[in-house]
Amino acid sequence: MKEKVISIKGVSFQYPDQEAFALRNVSFDVYKGEWLAIVGHNGSGKSTLAKMLNGLHYPSEGTVSIGGYALIEENVWLIREKLGMVFQNPDNQFVGTTVQDDVAFGLENNGVEHSAMQERVFASLEKVGMTAFLNQEPHHLSGGQKQRVAIAGVIALRPDIVLLDEATSMLDPLGREEVINTVRELNENEGLTVISITHDLEEASRADRVIVLNEGMLYTEGTPERIFQLDRELLNLGLGVPFAVQMSQLLTDAGLQLSRRHFNEEELVKDLWTLNFEK
């Protein structure tokens, strides 16, 4: 039996003075050690849901429980120790006046003792390649550097669950790969549960499970293979398909034979070769 770490039941949410609901009757569970991707069009409710899981909003209807605690005001600090979040805009997250103080701040709050703290701060900044910027003001970094520091801040806390809200959207291709791999290592080796809100379909296609939000509602969920079979339906949801699926389609349209629409580039290239060029 998979262990539930988050349980969301019938949750709706409305911002003050707004007509529409940002979340409508959303229910799903998150399991320990999984990598869950959340995708959906702009304004579909992803960040609203994320902020709720971090205790910044409370459901207008329905219930949420995180790490065994009900999401109510008394439990917010306990919940934030379990679940660390990287915000969509890193500027909203920085509290320290230097990069190292900023990462240390969360640890201090969690009562980590001073000597251990220094080590952890340095180790997490090293993981994201930002040790050359220890004394720079976080707001005075480049976009991608800000995102790296924000991620270090959460890794340092060693939470059970991390929630990344488009946390790598401004990283260069190799930098994104590095940072994702760092988180993946923690996911695979230490059982860290990862919830990643992303518009990057290649990243989503490597998740264990994908949830699709649409207009505040849970549209569908499943393995990446299943989700990306939806194909043209995804366009209407503001989404698209990963490269291999798109390439398969274009090759078929250009008159080449394929045994099926592929999801994986290696399989696609092999199939393309075997059916069209090998004699």
Binding site: H41, N42, S169, H199, L201, L237
Partner: peptide
């Protein structure tokens, strides 16, 4: 300056 960061895939295109 990175105008598509944060746009959904359809919007990006």
């Amino acid at each position: 300056d990175e105008p598509t960061a944060g746009l959904d895939p359809r919007g990006r295109q």
